[in-house]
Design a binder for these strands. Structure first.
Lengths: 136, 136
DNA sequence: CTTGACTTTCCAGCGTACTGGAAGGTTGAC
DNA sequence: GTCAACCTTCCAGTACGCTGGAAAGTCAAG
C-alpha cells in the first residue's frame, strides 16, 4: 500500500503521514525498490488510533508517549488513563477560564449598550474598555 | 520617561513595549540625544488600554485596528462593540467545543474504569480509546 | 574613572500541527 | 513513447505573542 492509499484509508494526507513518521509517531515502513514507502494494513489501525487520541484532545507529544509504551510491548492503558485524566483537568480549567472571559465580555457589552453617547472622555481610547475584569 | 520606567508603570517589560511599537500598537516616541526612547505619560494610558483589551480576549490584531481608528481621530467605540461581540461568539463556540470534549473524556474514563483487565485485544494500541466521539 | 544597570539594534526561537513548494524520480494507462 | 498522477527529499512558512541573546552604546553613583 502506497502512502497516498494509506492516507485515503484514514482520512489524512501523505504529507501528514510523513510528518508523523518524522515525529516518531509512525514507524518507518518498508520501501519498494523504487524508494516508495510500502505500508502493511497494521499501519491503518495505528493511524486510526492517532486520530482517536487526537479526538480525545491528546497532543502529539502525549500520543507519542503512549505509542512508545505500546511499542515496548507493554499495555499503555494505565498511562492512557493518566493522560486522559490530566487532559480532562486541563479542559475543565480552560472552560472555567473561558466562562470568566464570557462573563467579562457580557458585562462590557451590557455597559456598552447603556451609555450611548455620554462620557466621551477624549483622554482614553474607548470608554467601553475602561473597566477591569473582576477576577483575572 | 525611559522604556524601563514605562514598563514598570504598566506591568510589562521593555521587550514587550518595543515589540508593540514594532507591531504598530505603540507609536514611536521621541528620542533623547542618546537614542533612548523618551515617553510622555500618555503612553501609560495607551499601554493600559492594550492590557485591558487583551484581558477582554482581543488579539493584538483587533487592538491594532481599534487603535488605528482612534489615531485617525475617530471614536472607535462602534468598532469595539463589534469586535467584542465577535469575540463573545468565538468564546461561546470554544466553550461548546470544550464541553463536548469534556463529555467525551468523561465517557472514555468511565469506560476505562469499568473494564479493568478484560478485552486486551493485542491488535490495538489501547482499548480505552477504541470508541469514537459521538459528534466530532 | 570605573562599574553596573540600563539602553540600542537585529536576528532567532519558542510551541503546535501541520502545509506549501521546489526539483526530481516512478508508475501505469493509453 | 508519452503523459498525468503519483512518489521522493528538503527547506520554509503558517498563526500568536512574545522572549532570549549578542554586541555595542549610555547613564548615574561612588
Amino acid at each position: 500500500m502506497k502512502i497516498g492509499e494509506l492516507a485515503a484509508h484514514t482520512g489524512t494526507t501523505a504529507k501528514t503521514i510523513r510528518f508523523y513518521e518524522q515525529s516518531g509517531l509512525m514507524p518507518e515502513p518498508t520501501r519498494r525498490p523504487s524508494g516508495y514507502r510500502d505500508y502493511s494494513t497494521e499501519f491503518i489501525e495505528r493511524l486510526h488510533f492517532i486520530r482517536r487520541a487526537q479526538a480525545a484532545g491528546l497532543s502529539l507529544r502525549d500520543i507519542r508517549q503512549v505509542l512508545a509504551i505500546h511499542d515496548r510491548g507493554e499495555a499503555p492503558c494505565g498511562h492512557v488513563r493518566g493522560v486522559l485524566g490530566q487532559r480532562l483537568d486541563q479542559v475543565r480549567a480552560q472552560i472555567a477560564e473561558l466562562i470568566t472571559l464570557e462573563t467579562h465580555l457580557e458585562a462590557l457589552l451590557a455597559h456598552a449598550e447603556q451609555d450611548n453617547d455620554t462620557d466621551h472622555d477624549s483622554s482614553t481610547v474607548c470608554w467601553i474598555l475602561e473597566s477591569e475584569p473582576d477576577n483575572a
